[in-house]
Amino acid sequence: MSFTIYLRCFNGIVLREALRFVHQKERFFSALVRPLVWLGIFAAGFRSVLGVSIIPPYETYIPYEVYIAPGLIAMIQLFNGMQSSLSMVYDREMGSMKTMLVSPIPRWFLLISKLLAGVFVSILQVYAFLVIASLWDIIPPISGYITILPALIISGLMLGSLGMFLSSAIKQLENFAGVMNFVIFPMFFASSALYPLWKIEETSEWLYYVCFYNPFTYAVESIRFSLYSQINIEYSIGIVIFTFIFLFLSILGYDPGRGNLQKKGGK
């Protein structure tokens, strides 16, 4: 099968995701409102409680809003990753996942295309957020708007592949609420999104290690450093490793032979 055929397939999947994104305006706005509520309300109330000392990549004292912005960006991607996996569970129940899977093009390619399409949508959301966040004086150096892009791609891939793996493992659509409670909230709170890790270490050592090894922390920190045009090698390598693990598991989950697809009776 030639390169052009793969390319057409990839374009088709991305175009479909983009069209769905355009048609579902509510999804776009709710994706924006969520981090803005955190920024406008939570951060305003919390800034007086928590003093943030100078930690890399920041060079001066920063307001709390500035500290949590990268965490909120990662949250946009986390929700997007989970939502596109929600749409996969939904798609599969509605059967349109089946139409994709019966394409003669290899399944791993279809899944990765779908994943990249979701990342593309999440990046649009993040830039929209950054524009509005500038009203709160969250203004990184101009170069940060460009250097954040690679970090967004890789963290989007990691969170998207996590969602895809979960979508192959979730039995029914109803259980997705459980994923919100058992995946999204713990990942978000047990990370460096809302408070620096050294603060957590002061309180509880085991919680510190949970946060430290949480893949979401890697996403948050990669985004934080890249927003200031810096790179943190450890986090970057970690995120790539996590991406490969989740991607491998999700391709396994959708494998017709051993996958979880059959355990559900395929409906």
Partner: peptide, 16 residues
Amino acid sequence: DLSVRENLNYHSSLHG
């Protein structure tokens, strides 16, 4: 939420 043609285009692309 997609038009008939958009649906059919999507399917065509899945077949390259």
